[in-house]
Design a protein around this nucleic acid. Structure first.
Lengths: 145, 145
DNA sequence: TTCCTTGCAAAACTTTTGCATTAAA
DNA sequence: TTTAATGCAAAAGTTTTGCAAGGAA
């Protein structure tokens, strides 16, 4: 039996993306597979408009409404993560593993910070009846003067 | 000489707000003093629309354009802080001291976390040529099941 | 067939802007 | 008097929605 080759990073073929969508209970339609294939090609941060433009540029046009709706579906199923970084637009992160972010407002750069590089030695008591869903840490950067 | 009475909390009279604006190099016009007086009445989180509504309800109507423009001026001068909590709208925090936040998306509740309740024992190396401007920490909560 | 999804256009929201008018210094 | 700020309405940018048409099961 031949060994199963694993894709090197998160990159996935369209077929593999389709399978993954099905696994997650999301019907793998053509537009959805296109969007998933683009997003899951690498760990990255993309906005809805970037996705629309990038697909169109590759002759894989998907309507604006479908892109927005699909991103919401993907995010609520956990396939991707929606980030709140600035108030201009939503960003979608294909890296769903726990991690934090550096953000440079001037250039717009958004850089991952791996979990092991941050350590909390103290966190506040969670309010009664609540539990922590996630911890969002954004380290805002500016050019050193 | 009579002792100078300090306001108990952050609460400030309209007159004191006007003086504070002037100190910060912001011309204390009527609309600006109204907005500042509302915001600085207590440490709180308010959206532009809440401010417009609250002022209007008290017979102190200020136009939408002026409220939005004024909030930007206040935030960039450091009188208040603009928060990025969710992608629905901007929140303005009259507490400019360092602190973090709990957020419950379901109820919309936004609760301050004082600095001493969070301790980082490790932070990532700042990228070359950059410096840390601020650290935004949002602990997202949900109802315990 | 039946249900779900797509695409289009229009609507909904938040925020910004142009410009004539008004207020502050 | 001179400059800056206000208010209105319109515009801009992002995201959502209604609905007819198309596709999957």
């Amino acid at each position: 039996m031949l060994p199963m080759l694993q894709p090197s990073s998160t990159a996935m073929s369209a077929a593999a993306c389709g399978r993954k969508l099905a696994e997650m209970g999301i019907r793998p339609t053509v537009p959805r597979v296109r969007i998933a294939t683009l997003l899951l090609a690498a760990p990255q941060h993309l906005s809805a408009e970037q996705i629309i433009a990038s697909l169109a540029a590759n002759g894989r046009r998907v309507s604006k409404a479908t892109v927005y709706n699909t991103l919401k579906i993907f995010a609520s199923s956990g396939l991707i993560r929606q980030l709140t970084i600035d108030d201009s637009r939503a960003w979608y992160d294909s890296n769903t593993g726990a991690h934090y972010h550096f953000h440079d407002a001037e250039s717009g750069a958004l850089i991952d910070v791996p979990v092991p590089e941050v350590e909390f030695s103290r966190l506040p008591p969670t309010p009664d009846g609540m539990e922590v869903e996630s911890i969002d840490l954004v380290i805002r950067l500016r050019k050193k003067r």
